[in-house]
Amino acid sequence: MSLLTAVRETLSGFKSLLVGMRITAREATKPLITVQYPHDTLKMPARFRGHVKLVLDPETGKARCTACGLCARACPSGCIVLEGVKREGDKRKSIAKYDLDFTKCSLCGSCVEICASDALDFSKDYNVVSMNREDFSHLDLYKRIDAETKAWAETHPQPAVVAAPATSAAPVAPVAPATPATPATPPAAAAVPVPVIAARAAVSPAAAKATESPAAPVAASALPAGPKTP
């Protein structure tokens, strides 16, 4: 009887070995699932929190930041140092220096949450590597947004005809304090600049972004695609 049991156990053990080998064989024929990192990268999910960045206004091509300093005050680690200047012809201050100490930042998001003009957001930049500590202790966000502004200006050459709608929009401008006096509207949005600006002044900044992004698809694609944290 015990011999029978031994034979049965041996056979069932052998069968389980074959089952295991079938599983590995099947896995080996399936496509690869790893991402070859330096060659391929993953698309970051919408809620991914990289270091904060300044948001470019897709209509004006400039930083939305008004240098109010709320973020610097909200930061629990005190890692934000910023300065604003009042440029000629502007109704508001604009950012001139934004120094983020990323070595202290805990990515809590208080700055993003508190920002009144919706000018801060988490970047999707996870590929932050440097041999130099200074690159992180003084992360120059202004330099980044400046580069973005210049890139925007190159892709949105200011046409001469824009002058006419710009003057017609002038009376509306005081209603919308966040808007510069001469908005460099992209040609696609040139026909409907006034309602867009009005809507923006009336509703919350997050909703405004949703309304304006179809008007300026090129600039909107530069924005993070993810939903805004409330």
């Binding site: 590995t24 896995e27 080996a28 399936k30 496509p31 690869l32 699932i33 790893t34 070859q36």
Partner: peptide, 13 residues
């Protein structure tokens, strides 16, 4: 390479 295939990664490449 075989180990890689079975674990669904490319192995040394």
């Amino acid at each position: 390479k075989g180990a890689g295939r079975i674990q669904r990664r490319p192995g040394p490449n």
